[in-house]
Design a protein around this nucleic acid. Structure first.
Lengths: 139, 139
DNA sequence: CCAAACAGGACAAAAACTGTCCTCTTCGTT
DNA sequence: AACGAAGAGGACAGTTTTTGTCCTGTTTGG
């Protein structure tokens, strides 16, 4: 019932990207240093984020990473699911539930409702929101 | 970001108890058979539930388990936390957060909000609700 | 006193998480 | 064209968590 460290790293890394000047490319080593995250592990996470299209990678000399979409079109839910896969509080709450038809599990609705409530928050918060929040806190 | 199988077993087991005649004592073996759960594993879970006061154990001959409180005073959240410990989406969302003061994490609020939304649902649903739901479904 | 039934600890297999390392590919610079 | 910076990707390993099993002890009604 908790976010993995990988998921947290991904969000922190992407938030760092979102705070950089637009259209800039940032070194992975800079991100890992700034966020105090193991570089080799963060590399793995960013590879996953790249495949999910949330981040754009630039290989070779002067390479690095930039956001794959505008910051206000990337939600916290996007990032978590990009790294950890679809959110499912338990198997009963999955999109394609494997609860047998005959066994109409009474608890199923609770998982669905709880999950929807949580996902609603995560999907309603974008990287842009988080950056803005920071700016407001500083003013 | 998901419920453990142990948590699910605990809820299914307690829901079974809640559907028994009031003040009756039910054999662990009956619960495990009815719910198709390994008896020795379920034993461990019920030991935990007993220590949490959610279930009352009756040792010795003619022993078994009964609910520790009325079914309408036991929430799904109670059971999950009884088995898995306090719900914390991540360390930032814990009661006593270990996020350092200086590092005012912008994401902290998101975890808090998402967790509160989820826990709200789990804490708003009692075993009695689930039993009732079943009865309504059958009518 | 006996046998049923829970309590609790030790142990272990499996899975997931967290991380490292090495090689390959890409690409700007010179 | 060659070099070196930097991401891609696979293999591997340590740790933790989960998911159990098993054995011995303790309680208690009959």
């Amino acid at each position: 019932m908790k976010l993995t460290r990988g998921g947290e790293y991904g969000i922190r890394g992407m938030l760092y990207l979102a705070m950089q000047p637009e259209a800039s490319v940032t070194l992975l080593s800079e991100i890992s240093t700034a966020q105090n995250i193991s570089e080799s592990y963060l590399a793995k996470i960013f590879q996953t984020l790249t495949k999910a299209g949330l981040v754009r990678s630039h290989r070779g000399f002067k390479g690095g990473y930039s956001l794959g979409r505008p910051a206000d079109e990337i939600t916290v839910k996007d990032i978590i699911e990009g790294i950890e896969g679809p959110i499912a509080l338990n198997h009963c709450a999955q999109k394609v539930s494997n609860c047998s038809e005959e066994y109409r599990c009474k608890i199923q609705n609770v998982w669905k409702d709880a999950q929807d409530a949580m996902v609603g928050v995560l999907d309603g918060t974008t990287l842009a929101d988080l950056v803005e929040e920071t700016a407001m806190g500083q003013s």
